[in-house]
Design a protein around this nucleic acid. Structure first.
Lengths: 234, 234
DNA sequence: CTGGTTATTTGCGTTAGATCAAACAAACGA
DNA sequence: TCGTTTGTTTGATCTAACGCAAATAACCAG
């Protein structure tokens, strides 16, 4: 399922916001204490309710974090890409992982035993500070999403979700911006609290307006600014 | 609008989870660096978008934190009561307050200049650790609410909201549990992403079933158990 | 006490979006 | 290559909940 990857060169990660304003030696020390691993597409980094033992940094690839309810419906909480810290249970004193995280493509991640959180707090406070900054942004984004779910109707929510995907996980092509991993209509539905049918209808409408180009598990945004207008409710 | 309150006795706050496992002297030191203030019902502790200058601890009373959208709709994010830290922008490296907080009754709160966050980090790491634990719980609750908004229909969401209020802000009476501050149907609507009309209809139905007793800006839950079943979808 | 303001209730028509159903299309494995 | 699986589209209902409207009820200020 996973195999050890070679030692990570600090210079490869030094420009991550997570390592902002840190010395190369400090970065090297942090990296040495973690373990780099490969994950195949579909592998789980961790599962909901499982005791939290490690925290992770994505070096290559994309993952989704999702929660499953008692009655079996899934909600995709967010996506993570290169340079992002995830599974940070110790940062917020959580004993168990609150969600499941799954590799969307083949990935490389570095993981640390939880105990290093507290030791980094002392030895590399700047690292912890940078980490909390990104955790804070996530909290703010969660609250934004609550507002969105409470006040906006489906079309705007879906437009927002697609826009977020293009920003976080998009790659430029000749024609527009392509989401860098397979996304189904069902996935979009689970990100926005609607059904795959409604998403499909919206995508059909949008692509016939030339706003985007869709395929099987493929989304390519052609006119991002028009999508942004939709997301703002026009 | 606000006036200084007398010095706070450490023993009054020593049993707050925030001060768990801390020495009396340490608590006294922290308290000394803050300023206690009275807030009248309706006063704002801080406003959305305003530069964040202080963080707060509620000593007496209740407040609500809400966000307003561009098109003017309000969403109540959460309520805080005695012993809870709020407005913790520096903890998560936020320059501005992401929401507005308003006193629901006359309150007493202690506030600290942001700069003390970093100094407490060094001088009283246990305090900061306790604080992050509660921030982590809030993040988890936010995510739970996203799941709720994505998958549950209105009746369950409203039942959940009322239950949360009884747990966080309820006082026992002879007949049941009373929410300890004025709550309108509109408020419940803003907590659940629905309209005051729908809330009113639900409350009518529930109180005619003897589940609760409602009045003008008053909610008293009589059969919490049955409400919990509704919240779980029965 | 009285008039005005604010909160609540309830009925009724409308609709966004879910649900149900069926056909279609792309990928995949044997 | 063909059959199966998985994802997508689109049409046809159906309904939860909204929006509107109007009546009532509680509170407040002068």
């Amino acid at each position: 399922m996973q195999k050890k990857a070679p030692k990570i060169d600090p210079s490869l990660v030094a420009d991550f916001p997570l390592f902002l304003d840190m010395e190369k030696e400090a970065i090297a020390d942090i990296l040495e204490k973690g373990t780099a691993k490969h994950y195949k597409k579909g592998d789980h980094f961790f599962d909901q309710f499982e005791p939290a033992t490690h925290f992770f940094l994505m070096l290559d690839g994309y993952l989704e974090v999702s929660k499953t309810t008692e009655d079996g419906s899934q909600v995709i909480m967010r996506h993570f890409g290169v340079g992002e810290l995830f599974g940070v249970a110790p940062a917020i004193a959580q004993k168990n992982y609150p969600a499941t995280s799954r590799a969307l493509v083949d990935c490389v991640a570095i993981l640390w035993d939880n105990k290093f959180w507290d030791s980094f707090l002392v030895e590399h406070p700047r690292f912890i500070q940078n980490a909390y900054k990104s955790i804070g942004e996530r909290l703010a984004q969660s609250q934004e999403r609550i507002v969105e779910m409470s006040t906006e109707q489906v079309e705007r929510r879906v437009a927002h979700a697609v826009m977020r995907l293009t920003h976080q996980c998009g790659v430029k092509t000749e024609q527009g911006i392509l989401i860098d991993f397979p996304v189904s209509r069902q996935d979009i539905a689970e990100m926005t609290g609607t059904t795959l049918h409604t998403v499909s209808r919206l995508f059909s409408a949008w692509s016939s307006k030339g706003l985007m180009q869709v395929g099987r598990q493929k989304i390519e945004v052609l006119e991002a600014h028009k999508l942004a207008l939709l997301a703002q409710g026009h």
